[in-house]
Design a protein around this nucleic acid. Structure first.
Length: 602
RNA sequence: GGGGACGUAGCUCAAUUGGUUAGAGUACCGGACUGUCGAUCCGGUGGUUGCGGGUUCGAGUCCCGUCGUCCUCGCCA
């Protein structure tokens, strides 16, 4: 058989190669057939090159006429400059073409279930008439041929490489930790793996491994072991319901450092982040990143991951004002310890119909609020269903409080504080684009650290304090004194990296003192025995000389989403699962043989 | 577990809001064409309107159930 292996790829030939004999391999991206000529655009990862096959080679030409989309071809031929006026500026290789002298069909392809690509790579990012996502997931290997997916796969590679290069330079060691571990009670549901070897003697049921929700425990053990700078690009698994930005298995950059305080971690990581944005998106991120206290984020933006691309539209506390109006809903909420807060949507009067204003109520009801009140601020009056409950003096005061000008729309939510935050936070994020308050231009990245998270949150159902982050997160030194007496006031040495409204990562300084760790477990309602049973090995390790340490985990899938400008996490994974955690290509999860189950005692 | 949207030709969509034989683009098949490049032109094949039931003289359209996909609340750090 003739030599068919490529000498060049489909994206690299230029005028300077004219006259050379080359061999190209690739997929037929499209074909255009004439009686005496067939044009084929040959595609690989690197680009498209036009092949011309002519009828003077009768045997070859007969085959060429059969070529259809996605056939795999090898073409030997001579590079030549295209005829005058026949250059194609849409193609990087558009100044040349390859006149085929020999054609080898490496593989035929049936008509694909959907059109892979009819548009040249360089002409646009969006693929027109993209087939349904479930169909594309079923034939993922075809979908992955599309340039936009090839770009994100390449981006993931680059992201990983930038991370490894940077952390290597910073003396970090990449260490792998087990996939098969022990289930721990806190946090998300585990994916479980039965043990064939270890079974309960009485029942014959297997014991279980758990797949890691994160390498959290291991990285702390590595710190105890003296590996003072560790990282891992680690797969994590959580058996919870999915969202557009969540997969059952996902990838974190997990890192941990010894002998550091919070600011050491933030400084090192934000330099890494700036490097990532520079090298993966060509974007310059100014350092240091803003540090935004959690309380301020919740008050102003109603979210612990605010989208800072939104200008203004900040939430204003008006509970005291609301209590002085005649509006019953406001008065009752304030009287029962709730909050009334407002957002001023600048210039929004002309942007909302009456119906759209009334639709604010069902919108906030998604988040548990009873409704949203609104006021149109016009020349010298308020227009609103609740206008009659607001005396003139209160109207004047409100204008000042929310800096209202004519043409603005003020929106209120009155409820328990948590509900108000969530409702107004989502309202702000949802309507910012509508009222033109946001700059969502591609390449606009707004990053910040959110710091000073509460250590504990009160679980109303279980009537106890639960760890906001996890039970190993260190409280701030100055809050240790009130750990037991006023837990609501205790802030943690915990931090989240927030980018464009996404939580891109989070971490904390860990407790390294067994004494403090004991107090923490006690606060969480865990007896020493229970704590020992659940985390005994870690508590033992901490006793054996644990250094002060802390770290962070960055969600690399989300980071890749942000860098590539997609809102769909499946776009940045080679082989994603769908929203019900199914792999539509392989059919997983699937039943297994009875024999396998018997061996496992199931 | 709850809420919402969607499901029509291989693919992407339409069908005047319950009315005759369900259309278009693309793909595919055949033909025409000496340079195309999202080729063009002519012709053709292709439909259990996701599935099951119901209402009606009549259902792609309305109702109930079910399956699937996406978004979302709960959940998840």
């Amino acid at each position: 058989m003739a030599e068919w292996r490529r000498t060049h790829n489909c994206g690299e030939l230029r005028q300077e190669h004219a006259g050379q004999t080359v061999v190209l391999n690739g997929w037929a991206n499209s074909y255009r057939a004439y009686p005496d000529q067939v044009f084929v655009d040959l595609r690989d990862r690197y680009g498209l090159t036009q092949i011309v096959l002519e009828s003077d080679r009768a045997e070859m030409f007969a085959v060429a006429q059969e070529i259809r989309d996605e056939w795999v071809l090898s073409v030997r031929g001579k590079v030549r400059e295209r005829l005058p006026n026949k250059h194609n500026p849409k193609l990087a290789t558009g100044d040349i073409e390859v006149l085929a002298e020999e054609l080898i069909v490496l593989n035929r392809c049936p008509t694909p279930p959907f059109e892979v690509m009819s548009i040249p790579l360089e002409t646009g990012f969006g693929d027109p008439e993209l087939a349904g996502e479930d169909l594309r997931l079923q034939y993922r290997y075809l979908d992955l041929r599309r340039p936009s997916l090839q770009r994100t796969v390449a981006l993931r590679h680059r992201l990983n490489k930038v991370i490894r290069d940077y952390l290597d330079q910073e003396r970090f060691l990449e260490v792998e930790t087990p996939l098969l571990g022990r289930s721990t009670p806190e946090g998300a549901r585990d994916y479980l793996v039965p043990s064939r070897v270890w079974q309960d003697e009485k029942t014959g049921k297997p014991f279980w491994y758990a797949l890691p929700q994160s390498p959290q425990l291991y990285k702390q053990l590595l710190m105890v072991a003296g590996y003072d700078r560790y990282f891992q690009i680690a797969r994590c698994l959580r058996d919870e319901d999915l969202r557009a930005d969540r997969q059952p298995e996902f990838t974190q950059l997990d890192l941990e450092m010894s002998f550091v305080e919070q600011n050491d971690v933030l400084t090192l990581v934000e330099r890494l982040i700036a490097e990532i944005f520079q090298k993966c998106a060509g974007a310059t991120v100014p350092l240091p990143l803003p540090r935004l206290p959690y309380d301020k984020a919740m008050l102003q933006y109603g979210s612990d991951k605010p989208d800072l691309r939104i200008n203004g539209m900040e939430i204003v506390e008006v509970s005291d004002w609301a209590g002085s109006t005649e509006f019953r809903v406001f008065k009752d909420v304030v009287a029962t310890g709730g909050r009334v807060r407002a957002i001023n949507m600048k210039g929004a009067v002309t942007k909302f119909t009456r119906k759209q204003l009334d639709d604010l109520t069902p919108f906030v009801q998604q988040y548990g609020a009873k409704g949203a009140a609104w006021i149109k601020v016009e020349a010298d009056k308020f227009t609103s269903p609740i206008e009659k409950f607001i005396p003139a003096s209160a109207q004047m005061e409100l204008r000042g409080r929310v800096a209202a000008a004519d043409g603005d729309v003020i929106v209120f939510v009155a409820d328990k504080e948590g509900v108000v935050c969530q409702a107004l936070g989502h309202l702000r994020a949802h309507y910012a684009g509508h009222v033109g308050a946001a700059n969502y231009a591609p390449g606009n990245f707004q990053l910040a650290w959110v710091v000073d998270f509460p250590s504990f949150i009160w679980d109303d159902e279980e009537k106890r304090w639960v760890a906001n982050h996890h039970p190993f997160t260190a409280p701030r030194d100055e809050d240790l004194a009130v750990l037991e007496s006023d837990p609501a006031k205790v802030k943690a040495k915990a931090y989240d990296l927030v980018i464009n409204g996404y939580e891109a990562g989070g971490g904390s300084i860990r407790i390294h003192s067994p004494e403090v760790q004991g107090r923490m477990f006690a606060m969480l309602g865990m007896s020493p025995e229970q704590a020992r049973q659940r985390f005994g090995f870690l508590l033992d390790a901490l006793k054996f000389g644990a250094p002060p340490h802390g770290g962070i985990a960055l969600g690399l899938d989300r980071l890749a989403m942000i860098l590539s400008g997609t809102a769909n996490i499946r776009d940045v994974l080679a082989f994603p699962k769908n929203q019900k955690a199914r792999d539509l290509m392989t059919g997983a999860p699937a039943p297994v043989d009875a024999k396998q189950l018997r061996e496992l005692g199931l």
